[in-house]
Amino acid sequence: MTHRFPIKEIARQAGLGTATVDRALNGRAHVSPQTRARVAAAMAELEGQEAQLAARGRRMFFDFVIEAPDRFGREVRRAAERVLPQIGAAVCRPRFVMQEIMSEPEVVAALARIAKRGSHGVCLKARDLPGIRRAVDALVAAGIPVVTLVTDVTTEGRFAHVGLDNDSAGRTAAYLMVQSLRGAAGAVLATRSNESFLGEKAREQAFTLALARRCPRLRIVPVSGGSGVPYETARLIAEVAGQVPDLRAVYSMGGGNRAILQVLAEHGIAPEVYVAHDLDVENRALIAEGAVSFVLHHDLTADMANVFQAFLHWHRLVPEMPGPLLSPVQVITPENLS
């Protein structure tokens, strides 16, 4: 196969050995589809970064390990690509490991591979689990800074946390719900993608306190799991949908909104208010259709700029840390959907 990049460079971008990349590029046997996809993605990333390589500066590799639905992973990648041309202190080369569901051992293994091959920084979106915390501490001990994105990990080793102000988001969701329902009684379905994502936990805690204060006649029905993936999310919602005939509203903190709405419709339930998170492709369509009332959004491009700025500050290439690191919540309606 003809390609413009040296195998060694492709291997470094993909995080694979040169022999593996050579087999993938030449269509040889004993190469998994996942590995071929990683090589293809690495070449696409290199092509997208060629313009930046014309700039002068130190070349740095940053690794993104993201457990999230594909729709969010694509938004992260696009945000990084928008930010890269604006960075003048160094030539930054992102490498991505993204899966919709990553087990604790899979995240730990990914972080161990990064520690072994080296990196100038790791941006992590993962669950707060003991093995992952230990893997983060191992990266830090190896001199690799870790910045958590959207959801944090409870270890003092990580360098910074970047993302949405989750407390404010939870309170905002409660306010919107109470104003829309005008004091009505009933049930509110509050969904999270996983118990171990601290960002969603903070949203739920703030939402619960604010809703109890503003409208104690509304009771919360919590559902956690599914990782925001449609099939798993739908299965969990189906288990509770028949038990809440007085369901008035939904606060979806973890995604899978079209699947949630479909299951509720199958049970004859049409929420009066539906508050979702993140203005991804699915939520843009749902709010335009009127199926979702409000989307709580934050500027992921600004988050990504903060991630790179934090890394560059750690390496003493820029004098100051970015700030603020927590993004304010933006309330999106059909009237301000751009």
Results as ranks from 00 to 15, higher is better:
107 V>T: 12
113 R>N: 15
276 A>M: 11
293 S>E: 03
36 R>I: 05
283 N>A: 10
318 V>D: 14
282 E>W: 08
239 E>Q: 14
240 V>A: 03
44 A>K: 15
108 V>G: 14
121 G>S: 12
214 R>H: 01
21 V>G: 09
145 P>D: 09
184 A>N: 02
299 D>V: 03
255 G>Q: 01
3 H>M: 07
249 A>R: 11
202 A>W: 12
307 V>P: 08
160 A>C: 02
78 R>P: 01
37 A>T: 05
319 P>M: 00
303 D>Y: 06
281 V>M: 05
296 L>N: 05
75 E>K: 13
131 G>V: 02
51 A>M: 02
144 I>G: 12
22 D>R: 04
26 N>H: 15
197 F>M: 02
79 A>S: 08
156 E>I: 03
135 A>M: 02
254 G>V: 00
75 E>R: 15
282 E>T: 08
29 A>S: 13
311 F>Y: 10
234 A>T: 10
152 D>T: 10
218 L>N: 12
213 R>G: 02
30 H>F: 01
325 L>D: 00
326 L>F: 08
322 P>Q: 06
22 D>A: 02
319 P>A: 00
244 V>F: 04
204 E>H: 14
161 H>M: 07
323 G>T: 12
70 D>M: 10
55 A>Q: 14
262 Q>E: 13
186 G>I: 13
136 V>Q: 14
82 R>L: 10
193 S>I: 01
177 M>R: 13
246 D>N: 15
318 V>Y: 13
204 E>G: 07
294 F>H: 01
228 G>Y: 10
92 C>D: 08
221 V>L: 07
19 A>M: 13
296 L>I: 10
178 V>E: 08
311 F>H: 13
331 V>L: 11
301 T>Y: 03
270 A>Q: 15
318 V>N: 14
147 V>D: 11
326 L>V: 04
157 G>P: 08
54 A>L: 01
205 Q>V: 15
96 F>L: 12
265 A>T: 05
283 N>M: 13
33 P>V: 00
193 S>L: 00
24 A>P: 07
206 A>L: 15
83 V>N: 11
16 L>R: 02
34 Q>D: 14
54 A>M: 12
310 A>H: 09
8 K>W: 00
112 A>I: 04
273 V>K: 06
247 L>N: 13
3 H>D: 05
331 V>T: 12
27 G>A: 07
15 G>N: 04
58 R>L: 10
86 Q>S: 15
188 V>C: 09
171 R>K: 09
219 R>T: 14
220 I>T: 09
164 L>C: 07
338 S>H: 11
256 G>D: 05
5 F>H: 14
287 I>G: 01
324 P>V: 05
337 L>Y: 07
213 R>E: 09
263 V>K: 11
117 R>W: 10
318 V>C: 12
137 D>P: 07
37 A>R: 12
191 T>V: 06
292 V>M: 04
8 K>D: 01
290 G>A: 08
100 E>F: 01
153 V>P: 07
229 V>C: 02
321 M>W: 07
297 H>W: 01
324 P>S: 06
91 V>A: 09
265 A>P: 02
132 I>C: 05
109 A>Q: 13
242 G>T: 09
222 P>C: 00
254 G>T: 00
